[in-house]
């Protein structure tokens, strides 16, 4: 099931200066720490001049759509989904 949320969330981000890759590695959601096992897609968009980075990632059991506001450096969890169909 896909659920739209739009709530603040804690995220650990890893930056490798050699490969210049940026990867969210952990999401703290509802008291549980979820290890990210795969980044499905990363893209950006702007609202006005504010740049947002969107990471579509999955843990073993959940999909997270994480959005980083580069003005405030804060993370929002926009969407969550499990491995089940609707």
């Amino acid at each position: 099931m896909i659920q739209k949320l739009g709530i603040p969330v804690s995220v650990t981000l890893h930056f490798d200066h050699k490969t210049r890759q940026v990867i969210p590695t952990e999401v703290l959601f509802e008291g549980h720490l979820h290890q990210i096992v795969k980044v499905g897609f990363h893209h950006t968009y702007r609202v006005g001049r504010t740049l947002f980075h969107v990471f579509s990632v999955v843990s073993e059991t959940l999909f997270f759509k994480l959005v980083l506001n580069t003005d405030t450096l804060s993370w929002n969890l926009e969407e969550i989904a499990d491995d089940e169909t609707d």
Partner: peptide, 13 residues
């Protein structure tokens, strides 16, 4: 096309 400097790359962790 907007150049945003460091561009994160999506890949398997």
């Amino acid at each position: 096309l907007q150049d945003t400097g460091v561009t994160p790359v999506s890949h398997n962790v």
